[in-house]
């Protein structure tokens, strides 16, 4: 599904070269919920940007859905983002002078759906995040948690295969964070692959698989995650 081999990403500024990712290897298969953690500045956002085709990379091989995307054009990568990938940002990034429905429509319009299809998907997506009644509200009229749910609805409306989330709960209090996390888990359950960057250890523990990035490289803790989920299932009947 997603396969990165020996990816490295170097930021070149006037004075210094920053190796944000080095020899980065990661495989994510269909339907997984991957939580990415790591210290600040370790390269988490960079990884997400590369994975989501927001940025290119310097070296290595990246197969997305079996397609080599190392040298796709700008327009082609825009199309892939639009059709296959949904983004959720820490700062929500809703467009302030568009109402909720219009915000959710944005990627659908770029995809070229007609108005009927757009309407259907917008309603469905808002339904999914539990904000169906707020169609005409403007983003500033909502709380942070609600805004993030709208952002999730926007990501979902395109029915992406991937959901990439960069600290989606970073700006939220713990209650709201839990709501958002539950929403994401439901979405994952429905079949969407999710990669989420977070600082929150509690959330990290809830995921199937925890990938830790340290200094631009991966430390995979899949096994630990598996054992944890086993314990939790065994614990349940208790």
């Amino acid at each position: 599904m997603l396969s990165m081999k020996n990816i490295s990403k170097v930021y070149q500024s006037e004075l210094v070269e920053t190796h944000a990712l080095r020899e980065f290897n990661l495989q994510v298969s269909e339907g997984e919920f991957v939580v990415v953690t790591g210290p600040s500045g370790s390269g988490k956002t960079t990884f997400l940007n590369v994975a989501g085709l927001l940025e290119g990379f310097s070296q290595g091989e990246y197969l997305l859905d079996g397609v080599d995307v190392s040298s796709v054009s700008d327009n082609e990568s825009a199309r892939i983002r639009n059709e296959k990938i949904g983004f959720i940002f820490q700062g929500f990034n809703l467009i302030p002078d568009l109402n909720l429905a219009e915000n959710i429509e944005v990627p659908l319009r770029y995809r070229g759906f007609d108005s009927k299809e757009r309407k259907r998907r917008v309603e469905q997506a808002l339904e999914q995040v539990g904000l169906a009644s707020r169609l005409k509200h403007l983003p500033p009229q909502l709380s942070g948690g609600q805004q993030q749910r709208v952002a999730i609805a926007r990501a979902l409306a395109g029915e992406p295969r991937f959901l990439l989330a960069d600290e989606p709960t970073g700006n939220l209090d713990s209650l709201m964070a839990r709501q958002v996390m539950e929403l994401l888990e439901n979405i994952n359950q429905a079949g969407t692959t999710i990669i989420m960057v977070t600082h929150d250890p509690e959330l990290a523990r809830r995921a199937q698989r925890n990938v830790q990035i340290v200094d631009g490289q991966v430390c995979d803790f899949t096994s630990y995650q598996k054992s944890r989920s086993t314990t939790s299932t065994t614990a349940e009947p208790a």
Binding site: G52, N75, A78, R79, R81, N82, E83, N93, P107, Y110
Partner: peptide
Amino acid sequence: TKQIGTRRALGARKAD
């Protein structure tokens, strides 16, 4: 600026 970046992330082409 941020809005434009977001639009690009959501799949807008340069022409869009």
